[in-house]
Nucleic acid binder design. Sequence first.
DNA 1: TAGATCATGTAATTTGTTACATGATTCG
DNA 2: CGAATCATGTAACAAATTACATGATCTA
Lengths: 192, 192
Amino acid sequence: MARESLTTLEHALLGLLGMSPGSGYDIHKVFERTPLAHFSSSPGAIYPALKRLARAGLLDEEMDRRAEARPRRVYSLAEEGEGRLEEWLREQVTREELVRKPGASLLRFSLMESRLSKAEVVTYLRGFREAVAAYVAELETYREMAKGGGLHALLALENGIAEYECELEWIDRAMAAVDARGAGHRGRRKRR
Amino acid sequence: MARESLTTLEHALLGLLGMSPGSGYDIHKVFERTPLAHFSSSPGAIYPALKRLARAGLLDEEMDRRAEARPRRVYSLAEEGEGRLEEWLREQVTREELVRKPGASLLRFSLMESRLSKAEVVTYLRGFREAVAAYVAELETYREMAKGGGLHALLALENGIAEYECELEWIDRAMAAVDARGAGHRGRRKRR
DNA sequence: TAGATCATGTAATTTGTTACATGATTCG
DNA sequence: CGAATCATGTAACAAATTACATGATCTA
């Protein structure tokens, strides 16, 4: 059992349920009504994923039968799940992830706040920055080639470059913001 | 047969083969070596998709057996495929597409150059701009909410806002560039 | 009290991923 | 002449989408 690696959706579920336990419908609402919306809120994706994670021992499943209502299955992060989650949170941003899983790097950033130390967060952002900068450089090399092609192709390429440059600026702001804050939640202020 | 709507990959295949016919491996190379890389270059995605499109009558499949080499199946855009492609190219950008299919709106832009008139392109960009602006406005409303949450959540939200604002700037530049060029390829300079 | 929407899912189908298979050609 | 890489796929499997199903509770 237990596929080696989890999907982005599964990681998102671990992260969200790690913040506060909830049911499939709670997750559905988050995906429906917050900017996390690029995940599908379709039940056919969420419920089976929760079940998979529970079967794999990464989530605890608990039946909630207060009162009259239909019983709801409430999921919370199991210990093994914490391990897997933090392992994922510590993964560096790669070119591959940048290109093939847009949003994943940012998702990881937004879920690491309470689980990684400030130093780790800064390291993560530094790696993020490097990966983006390298990709921008790669895209620049296409520019000459694209000049031979059509106008739209060139513009589309420039869209990509601009987008990632904008990401770079954000990363710098984010580093400053993280830095400005005192020692992180898990930062364990230097003893005494 | 013929599912109602095509996937983004299938639309991309129609667009690429509409520019110049080619084999599955040619497509693979494009996805592998150009910034179109967010499509999977895996043969398991490409070859079946080509077959589907050929079966549906949107692509023409032709066996190329020059000389010694293994025969390659060369695909080109069929007439029905042109219709479907142009139909898709004329679709407006929606919030849904922006959120759930990142990259699709830009792909459409880059494939419409030789098939839509300059006026249509400008209209498309105008719609694109509106959709992005509306989405930025939507994200702004979350900002207040996010202040209650953690720092990372707020930063992630601001990343989204910054990214789409950057997209707005690009759209303006693109409109200017398209406009600056003479009457478009399909623009049929005013008679005489 | 009828209709919406909350809350929970299941099932059929399609798509995409990963891994494998195969033969030709080019490179060291 | 052996290894890489070009070029073509197939097969098994996992995952996501779409559509359906069901009952409770709120609301006009």
